[in-house]
Nucleic acid binder design. Structure first.
Lengths: 143, 143
DNA sequence: GCTACATCCTGTAGTCACTACAGGATCAAG
DNA sequence: CTTGATCCTGTAGTGACTACAGGATGTAGC
């Protein structure tokens, strides 16, 4: 008769949970230091011990980071997903704000891309004295 | 009889060149400290004095930063645009590498945007116990 | 001349999200 | 019993700034 949340992944070292979740060992300790993650159990020799719950949370954090959430946003998401009472609306609000951020960044980068690409296209590649790339950066060049 | 490179913008204080170029005062001093910019002349009282040449360079740096060039890339561009001998090919190479970076970032962000938007769309906004946003982040949630 | 206030100076520390060490303890295998 | 891997704590470095502390000037009004 196994525990309800038990899995094959209990009793891991920090190296094992790092392997399992793909999060760097130093990063895991860093997350603990800034209190993004609660301090785990310790073995008699002082080493950290992780279980399946910890690995689930850590995987969540990693996925959120990959999606570009800041650690503060993740902190909020963890609180909301925490002790029941998770309000889907609040989670959606955080995610929506983040989506707006992403869209603004994409729009900015696209403008940059067009400008830079057009400029480079005008570039002969020879050792011409006036370079269009330098020109576009240096508005006052032709003074 | 005025000097060849003289303009109305000579003999500025750091506050004035900051105003003119839109670069923060602290940032200008920071650029000097990391040797992105050469140390300017000083007045008898020790204050920095800038002229039109400095403001041209600083505007170039600002524009390059807006286009997302790193300070190291800008350092290289300044060297290339520096004492004549500017090879347009080298400038184009730096800009092209940077353009590749920008395109990769856009592509990454677009993937994120699609994933996040689709997830949020599945969100009812009610206080449903299983939130699609948390679900997609927390792969093992339904254990 | 005096008083305010703005502007300048240097130098240090904080931001974000890590990463990289230094210097030591402990463990597992041969 | 030695070697090498893994772990521990703590500090410092990254990029590109920003913010402040604490002090020295400059400028304007009275």
């Amino acid at each position: 008769m196994r525990g309800i949340t038990a899995s094959r992944a209990d009793g891991m070292t920090i190296g094992q949970i790092s392997e399992l979740t793909g999060v760097n060992i130093e990063t895991i300790r860093y997350y603990e230091k800034i209190r993004l993650l609660p301090p785990p159990l310790r073995a008699a020799n002082g080493r950290r011990i992780y279980g399946s719950t910890e690995s689930r949370v850590l995987a969540f954090v990693r996925r959120s980071r990959e999606l570009g959430f800041s650690l503060d946003e993740i902190r909020a998401l963890l609180r909301l997903g925490g002790p029941g009472k998770a309000s889907c609306r609040e989670v959606r609000d955080i995610a929506t704000l983040h989506l707006d951020d992403i869209r603004a960044k994409i729009s900015d980068l696209r403008k940059l891309e067009r400008l830079l690409a057009a400029t480079i296209a005008r570039c002969s590649g020879t050792t011409a004295p006036d370079c269009p790339v330098l020109d576009i950066l240096d508005v006052q060049r032709r003074n």
